[in-house]
Design a binder for these strands. Structure first.
Lengths: 335, 335
DNA sequence: CTGAAAGCGCTTACAG
DNA sequence: CTGAAAGCGCTTACAG
């Protein structure tokens, strides 16, 4: 009764109990022909009673595939990713694929380590959401080793690879064009410059401003996609410039930080300062917040990425599939 | 150049390239004695050049362990869990364990399937955050099969098992005692009754009200931990009772739904309706929200759970470890 | 319809 | 210091 008797029930144990060979158990349980119905049922019954479960390690080793894929996200604490992950997990389950979700850090610091671990575990494909330009050589290596992968959201210039996302440039441009009105002093608080998504959003916002004959304030253009970063940049800007008319933020979390500072300083939104976010995270629509933002079809992005990846795993070898999904401007109370 | 040449580089390939046996490669790479330094270096170099990575499937099968644990959460879209997951992942990495995080659905619908899959994959331990009373027999089965697991947050009565959490009853009681003041008509919008956490919070709130000589309104006491559920219950309540003085919510997400309805109907918070949340999710402290809540040490919960689980995996067979962590009332603007 | 054997990619006693 | 062999738990041709 005591001590570590943690041995698994094996196919062989079942075989012995039934009085057949382990191959017969395998045939019976996998629905292969060549086993009488009566015997098949008896084996199934005994296997079930004994709690036999085939070892995925052994099956994977033998079969050479594992029906698993990996999803890499920078930081599960950013609400953007859990919703994307839901889409991926659901779609994968429908395809009979199990997904391992891993964090790689805001700066992608653990990305290589995580990819290596997943590939070592015979993961059959990878979905990457946090690539940076410097990852290009790693991705080329993946391609050379014929490990299927897909990019979600962020992409890398000149690297042909499957990708699902939105047109961040167009979305940001459209958003800013809608909200700028008569606001003259405008700041852009974008995300990390090296993220293609953040770069696209910043460029789009800039384009809209220039079309309106405006030049944004130079400070705080790039930074982390965090609330603290938004707050710090807002404090610095308000200290140096006084309150500005409009702050265009790279995502909703940065916008939250800016709103924190407005609250601290008794500035009213949008009368004193207008604010836009991006991503339309769930909290953005909350009654007291009513953040103007851009809805990104996160679940759908996940689903589409899985579909493309599954085809690659199945051996599809055609050119890079690029899927650009529609976005939606969500005009609310903050701008 | 074309077609699916996706074969892995194996230990044997390295051995052949160096001109030794595959055992020697294993010894060399695993730092076992009996290989000259010169040869060891040569093997390491060739292995690296060829991109050799030991198959985790094969190693796991051979060694009988995989250094992986599973974390089961109901729904990654609930911001409570990603932060808990961070704590788990970090602590696990420090212990050399990889963690597989899986969703099991708000009602735990997929829990059994996911546990089975993880155990089939030779996962060495499980961390469960979404157990319900009806899971007791499944957990006993896990114990019988000597599969180490730990409970986080929710627990099951009369089932001795490792657990990490807070005293939800005491926290809710303290929170309500602090905010009730002269409010007379009070509603409790709790989470699912069968969740020990939600039940404890509701009971604590009830106890505080009764000590204040109050009986809460009977409607909407239990429901889902979602914003929609909070909004629906608030609409139903306000329609039937008119606005109430105070709504005590089972978590911050429910509270957000209640705030949505207050906003819809032009009720001011906390003047017309006071609201409390629970969990102190990141959005709760946002400037325009300032939700009164209870801070739960999510990261620390994750860390402690991993530590306990690791000891179990290492063979510790002592009695159930119960870790009750401190919470903190966060009084802000909504109550 | 059933059994014996090989092999997936490793590690580890055991001989030399 | 190095090699041949067994075995982890499966699946799948191949004989009977």
């Amino acid at each position: 009764m005591s001590g570590g008797n943690r041995r698994r029930v094996t196919q062989r144990d079942v075989a012995r109990a039934v009085g057949v060979t382990s191959a017969t158990v395998s045939y019976a349980l996998n629905g292969q022909p060549g086993v009488s119905d009566e015997l098949r049922e008896r084996i199934a019954k005994v296997a079930d009673e004994m709690g036999f479960r085939p070892s995925r390690l052994a099956v994977g080793l033998r079969l050479g595939h594992t029906d698993t894929i990996g999803l890499l996200v920078p930081d599960v604490a950013n609400p953007f990713y859990p919703e994307l992950a839901s889409g991926v997990i659901e779609a994968a389950a429908a395809e009979g694929l199990q997904v391992f979700v891993s964090q790689v850090g805001l700066d992608g610091r653990d990305q290589l380590r995580v990819i290596t671990a997943l590939v070592d575990s015979h993961c059959e494909g990878l979905l990457l959401t946090a690539v940076l330009p410097e990852d290009a050589s790693m991705l080329k290596e993946l391609q050379a080793r014929r490990i299927p992968f897909g990019l979600i959201n962020r992409r890398i210039e000149d690297l042909p690879a499957d990708w699902v996302g939105i047109d961040d440039f167009a979305a940001a441009k459209e958003l800013v064009a809608q909200v700028v009105g008569s606001r003259r002093s405008v700041a852009i608080f974008g995300g990390p410059e090296r993220s293609s998504v953040s770069a696209g959003r910043t460029a789009g916002a800039l384009a809209a401003l220039r079309e309106a004959g405006l030049e944004p304030l130079p400070d705080g253009r790039a930074g982390a996609l965090t609330r603290d970063s938004g707050a710090e940049r807002a404090r610095a800007l308000f200290d140096s410039q006084g309150p500005v008319d409009l702050v265009v933020c790279g995502n909703d979390v940065i916008a939250l930080g800016v709103m924190d500072v407005c609250y601290e300083r008794g500035l009213s939104v949008p009368q004193d300062v207008a604010i836009t976010g991006f991503d339309d995270m769930s909290f953005a629509s909350a009654g007291p917040l009513r953040l103007t933002s851009v809805e990104v079809p996160r679940q759908e992005m996940g689903r589409r990425a899985v579909q493309t990846l599954r085809r690659r795993i199945a051996g599809f070898d055609g050119e890079a599939q690029v899927v650009e999904l529609p976005y939606r401007i969500r005009r609310r109370s903050t701008a």
